[in-house]
Amino acid sequence: MTSSDAFGSSWSDLERPPLNAPSLRRALVRPGSVWTSLDVVAATGSTHTDLVGRVREGSAKEGAVLVAESQSAGRGRLDRAWSAPPRSGLFFSVVLRPTGVPPARWGWLPLLAGVATATAVARAGGVDTGLKWPNDLLLTVDGEERKAGGILAERVDDHVVLGVGLNVTLRADELPVPTAGSLALAGAVGTDRDPLLRAVLRSLGDRYERWRSAAGDPSASGLQEAYAAGCVTLGRSVRAQLPGDRSLVGEAVAVDGDGRLVLATGDGVQEPVGAGDIVHLRNA
């Protein structure tokens, strides 16, 4: 892996300049900050896989941030591949160690990351950003909701590695699938990745500190309310593709205290869904 502090040929695409690693470190790795280190590499397989390995080796501590300009084996939820042209998005992972928070509440971390990222993107990019349960970031492109980002969480002993992928400047002909989107395609007023990354990490750090200070209580920390306010899945008829090739159709009526999506089915039963793929069918 090569550091992007001095990128050389990466300036060949002037519309997609490299991230400024020293500037990012000065802004984010400061006394009192959650973030304790920040590295930017030109290319890797997956920042998530790299940090998981470092945590297991004991060489990465809480607050470590690893950013890649390009990933060859990026991963999304449900082991899906995540690919994008170099320097066209934000691809990074962080290490958190939620001491003082009962492990039963750690399942809120990917939802927390979704709220923090959506909030930052809406403010810094100037575009409406919604969350599809549990943590897909949706933007409106040509009148349609498109997935522009996602979050992956993995527990490693007493740490959690969170991975974030966000499409920033992808053009229509570069989208991995027709249903994908990017900030540029959504008409964002700002697509400079440096301020976007600063905004996302600051938002994530602030939200994490509030959650951890409340011992992970999603209500007391304001996380559950914030998530419900930004979750565009609520109020819709959805189909949940559940483990074991089972599916469930109903109206998404709430997100419960464990972060599960509660579906009201046609037979009057409310059933919580904790894992699975959600398909939006229509507005309720």
Rank of each mutant, 00 (worst) to 15 (best):
P134E: 07
G100A: 00
C231N: 04
A84D: 14
S72L: 12
V269D: 12
S237T: 12
A64H: 11
N283V: 05
A252S: 02
G216C: 01
K132Q: 05
G45P: 05
A153N: 07
R146N: 11
G268F: 11
A215P: 00
A73P: 08
V279E: 10
L185M: 13
G76E: 07
P17S: 01
R56M: 08
E144W: 01
R260H: 15
R26N: 13
R80K: 09
R212V: 12
P178N: 04
V127A: 00
L28A: 06
N283A: 07
G107S: 04
E251T: 09
G222T: 13
W35N: 04
N20P: 08
G230W: 04
P178Q: 07
N167K: 13
R30H: 05
R87M: 12
E144V: 01
D128R: 08
V40N: 05
V127E: 03
S219D: 14
A284G: 11
G150D: 11
V95E: 09
G257C: 05
N20T: 11
E154W: 11
R30T: 14
E145M: 00
L14N: 00
T117S: 10
L139Y: 12
E174W: 05
R75C: 10
G76I: 07
G235M: 06
R80D: 05
D256S: 12
L223W: 03
A60F: 03
W211T: 01
S3T: 15
L78P: 00
Q241N: 03
R25I: 12
L281V: 14
G222Q: 08
A148M: 14
G250I: 04
A104F: 05
L14D: 02
G130V: 01
A199P: 15
L263K: 07
L166F: 09
L166G: 08
L223A: 02
A153C: 11
H280F: 05
V127P: 04
V255H: 05
G149N: 12
V269R: 14
A118S: 10
A122Q: 15
L162R: 03
L152T: 09
V115Q: 00
L175Q: 11
V200A: 02
G89Y: 13
S23W: 15
V95K: 05
L152P: 05
N167T: 14
P103W: 06
A199T: 14
A215M: 00
S37V: 13
G100D: 02
A43R: 14
